[in-house]
Amino acid sequence: MTRSRAQIAQRLTRASGALSSAALSRMEDDMPWVTQLPAEDRSFIGLIVQAGIKSFIDWYRNPEGAAAIRAEVFGVAPREMAGEITLEQTVAMVRLSIIVVDENLEDALGEDAESVRGPLNRYAREIAFATAEVYARYAEQRGAWDARLEALVVDSLLRGEAEETISSRASALGWDGSGKVLVMAGRLGEGGNSAGSLDDVRRLAREHRLDCLCAVQGDRLVVVLGGVDRQGRPAASVAAAFADGPVVVGPVVGSLTDARISADAAQSGLRVAAGWADAPRPVHADDLLPERALAGDRSARATLVEQVHDPLAGAGGSVLETVDAYLAHGSSIEATARTLFVHANTVRYRLRRAAELTGLTPSDARDSYTLRIALTLGRLAGVEL
């Protein structure tokens, strides 16, 4: 006797409970990870299996008028399940459910089983596409959420929000928290592809096993890197992801919650990087102290006085006087010696001493510029600082 689709669908409906139970039992036997899931997740898997079988029956009864498979099957489970169960696992569950239904068709339908197998295979393809769509949408939504959270963390760092807030949000993004931290800043440039730049930064950070948080701040790209060493290595490798133009690296700090210090220096340096025409790329914010000081950065002024002027002034032996005279006489040792009425070797000794104290070599053009600015600020310290 030939039965109509509606009649066969009715028989499938009566057998749906047994088919669902058989599929779930098979999953527990063949997929040990299913039994390790929390009870709530296992219950949602059961609902998905039941909804999948019901959806097939409805689709078989009326292929043209059936509702969207994705909504029918996966609408019963919370969106968060896509974060707990992988796409591979979900596809395996769907495949196994189809196999179990196929194996039990003869018991449920007898001679009508063969007429259902073809539609069942077509339905399997449809639900496979629906499964991929669910995970693609989840990944898109999760990616958008992560991007917003990441931008929020970077903004919080720049504004100096509470430490516990920053740490908890960064942890949600997978921030490891070990190693030193620094901040880099560069410009996006007109028409810059911010999404592409962010992706490039993250890729390079992963290649060097660095934690990474990045966000676009106006026309700037700000990157927070964790896991660097005391010298900031290998952060310089990430500079390649920035658009053309200066890239400034802030000082290394001990933890993410101290990153505000590095961020302030990096952004201050970026604002004045054009003042040093031959600056390397990337350039360290501390190497831009003269330009930052000239632009009104009080922190840079204080640093130059404390780290350059004060050590020279406290060294004794007329070291500060010698450096000042050396710079004033065109970096001529002989002219400096004549001005101070000392031997040229004495001048050389004092200049070497100055280099040891400050890390700046008076005979180097860039270092001599920094020394000039620092000595001037030191003389003005009692008035301006």
Rank of each mutant, 00 (worst) to 15 (best):
V201W: 10
V201K: 03
V201C: 07
R202Y: 14
R202Q: 12
R202T: 14
R202E: 15
R202C: 04
R202S: 13
R202F: 14
R202W: 12
R203E: 15
R203W: 07
L204A: 12
L204C: 08
L204W: 10
L204N: 04
L204S: 11
A205N: 14
R206S: 15
R206L: 13
R206A: 15
R206D: 15
E207V: 13
E207H: 13
E207M: 13
H208C: 04
H208L: 07
R209F: 02
R209S: 08
R209P: 00
L210C: 07
L210W: 11
L210A: 09
L210P: 07
D211R: 00
D211I: 03
D211L: 05
C212K: 01
C212W: 01
C212F: 02
C212P: 03
C212G: 03
L213V: 10
L213Y: 04
C214A: 14
A215M: 13
A215N: 08
A215E: 09
V216R: 06
V216Q: 12
Q217I: 09
Q217W: 05
G218S: 09
D219T: 04
D219Q: 09
D219P: 05
D219W: 04
R220F: 01
R220M: 06
L221S: 02
L221T: 00
L221R: 00
V222T: 06
V222R: 00
V223Y: 04
V223E: 00
V224C: 08
V224L: 09
V224Q: 06
V224F: 13
V224S: 05
L225E: 08
L225Q: 11
L225S: 10
L225W: 01
G227E: 11
G227F: 14
G227A: 13
V228F: 02
D229W: 02
D229C: 09
D229Q: 06
R230F: 07
R230W: 08
R230D: 12
R230S: 14
Q231P: 01
Q231G: 12
Q231H: 10
Q231N: 10
G232Y: 02
G232P: 02
R233K: 08
R233E: 06
R233I: 02
R233Y: 03
R233Q: 12
P234G: 05
P234V: 02
P234E: 00
P234T: 06
P234K: 01
P234I: 02
A235C: 03
A236N: 04
A236M: 02
S237I: 03
S237Y: 03
S237K: 06
S237W: 02
S237C: 02
V238I: 09
V238M: 00
V238Q: 00
A239E: 02
A239S: 11
A239C: 05
A240T: 12
A240K: 15
A240H: 10
A240C: 05
A240D: 09
A241F: 03
A241N: 10
A241H: 05
A241E: 12
A241Q: 08
A241M: 12
F242G: 03
F242R: 06
A243N: 07
A243I: 04
A243K: 11
D244R: 13
D244M: 08
D244E: 08
D244H: 11
G245P: 07
G245I: 08
P246K: 04
P246C: 03
P246A: 08
V247Q: 04
V247H: 05
V248D: 09
V248R: 04
V248L: 15
V248G: 14
V249L: 15
V249H: 05
V249Q: 15
G250V: 03
G250Y: 01
